[in-house]
Design a protein around this nucleic acid. Structure first.
Lengths: 151, 151
DNA sequence: ATAAATAAAGATATTTTTGTCCTTATTTAT
DNA sequence: ATAAATAAGGACAAAAATATCTTTATTTAT
């Protein structure tokens, strides 16, 4: 559905929202390890999300790293897609037709529309914070490492 | 959602299903023009769909071209995704986690699952024929050309 | 038999995506 | 002031996706 870059952006943001406060910042190494992504590439992506401090904030130097303000954590997940320039995925015609619309629908338009609406609703209603909180319970995960089941 | 290649595959297949019979074959130029796709690239894609005559059939020489058997037209749209090696899109984790599952769900898993199920259902239940038939009514389209509204 | 029309196959080119690495700027602690 | 730790920025590299072009094989009509 999304590009690798956007997948990393989503996972990284959730991780930062979960682990950071304005006081406590998280380094790129830790982030990349936690979400199983290439560190340098992930750094590039976070740079983009840090533009204008829109979603992620950062500071350099010792004890520097990435963090999110409480306000940013309350942003809808969709804002990550927008920042990554991949919001279009949620809107576009499943057959790739530029002019597909109510006026000139493709043969999948009517049925696909209802699914798209749910997708958009999901990304608009869920906040980054909500996803981060879910991982705190230890019942949902953003790692690729296999869980060790407790006896 | 899908790659360009798969979008062209879907549109081309629908067009061939609509226009061809075992008797009447359609050339690549006509197909590419109708669905607004690059002819050579589209030819490559149809070559893949023609493998083992699974979805599309073809014959060379004068009056040759692409066509579909009635049986092939009754295939689910999903079979095109499978032939294009892009069926995974319908199954995979929205955050790109390899191990995301009921056992180890990502924070979007539960909500995204129901949407995925509808997507899969849509692609499994709709046949190529049904989409082609819809375009015959002239109420749905697979072209990128702007409709001219009749007075 | 020959020529023409067509898809198949293969080689190549271009663009985009993904990824790495090196240098620079900034901040902090000493 | 200096050294160390960090992100930012830019140049580069590799891989994948998209696209084109040329040659070959097949079929049909004459």
């Amino acid at each position: 559905m999304f590009s690798k870059a956007t997948e990393y952006a989503l996972r990284a943001t959730i991780y930062i929202a979960k682990k950071s406060t304005t006081e406590k910042k998280i380094g790129i190494e830790e982030i990349a390890k936690a979400i199983d992504s290439p560190p340098s590439f992930t750094a590039k992506i976070l740079q983009a999300l840090t533009k204008d401090n829109k979603i992620v904030s950062s500071s350099r130097g010792p004890n520097g790293g990435f963090f999110m303000t409480e306000k940013a954590k309350r942003l809808p997940v969709r804002s990550i897609l927008l920042a990554m320039g991949e919001d279009e995925v949620l809107e576009k015609c499943v057959l790739g037709l530029k002019l597909c619309s109510e006026v000139q629908p493709c043969p999948m338009h009517a049925q696909y529309k209802t699914i798209k609406q749910q997708l958009i609703k999901l990304f608009v209603q869920k906040t980054i914070q909500q996803l981060a909180d879910a991982t705190k319970d230890g019942e949902v995960f953003i790692t690729n490492k296999k869980l060790v089941v407790k006896k």
